[in-house]
Each structure stands twice: as C-alpha cells, then as structure tokens.
C-alpha cells in the first residue's frame, strides 16, 4: 500500500518528458488557441504527476482548475484578440 519513489520511476520519467515537450510547445507555437489547449494538456500531465507524488488534494484541484477553468478563460480571451502571434 505504501508508496516508494523507485517503484514507479518509469512512469514518472515518461510524464516528465511529456511535461517538457508540452511546456516548450505551449510557448513556441504561433496559434494562440492551440497554445491554450496545449497548456490545458500540460496542466493535466502535471496533475497526474502530483497524484504519483501523493498530493491527491492538489491534483484534484489542478484537474478542476488547470485543465478545466483556466483553459476556458484563456480561450475566451483568445476569442477577442488576434489569433496569430508573431513569435
């Protein structure tokens, strides 16, 4: 039942690699709507990582806030500004 840092390290490393890819993609992609959606995916991967690190309450909050509400807020802003970014 008890958790061990070394028992699930493959899973952790996989999540961390995806975290890097998504973070770099979110700030380098030119389409702002795509950037917002990738940021939502980044939040969800972060939530899985925190579940693996025993922080269930924080992961629950992040799943509701990061993947749900904040993505919608960024999308709602992207609706009212120019969609393409220059860099």
């Amino acid at each position: 039942m008890n958790w061990d840092a070394s028992s699930l390290w493959q899973f952790n490393v996989l999540l961390l690699i995806m975290l890097f890819i998504l973070a770099i993609a979110a700030i380098s992609i030119k389409d702002l709507v795509a950037s917002a959606v990738i940021f939502g995916a980044y939040s969800f991967i972060m939530c899985l990582l925190w579940t693996a690190m025993l922080a269930v309450d924080v992961a629950f909050t992040e799943a509701a806030v990061g993947a749900g509400v904040s993505t919608v807020l960024v999308l709602g802003t992207a609706l009212h500004i120019k969609r393409k970014s220059k860099d």
């Binding site: 700030i27 950037s35 500004i81 860099d87």
Partner: peptide, 17 residues
C-alpha cells in the same frame, strides 16, 4: 523573450506551476 502578451501570461503560468 516573447513578444505577445498572451504568450507572456501562459509562460507565467508555466513558471508558477
């Protein structure tokens, strides 16, 4: 380094997390 303000805000959220 990003020029777009929304990109700056998303970067700030990544910094925060």
């Amino acid at each position: 380094s990003k020029n777009n303000l929304l990109k700056k805000v998303i970067s700030m959220a990544i910094f925060q997390s």
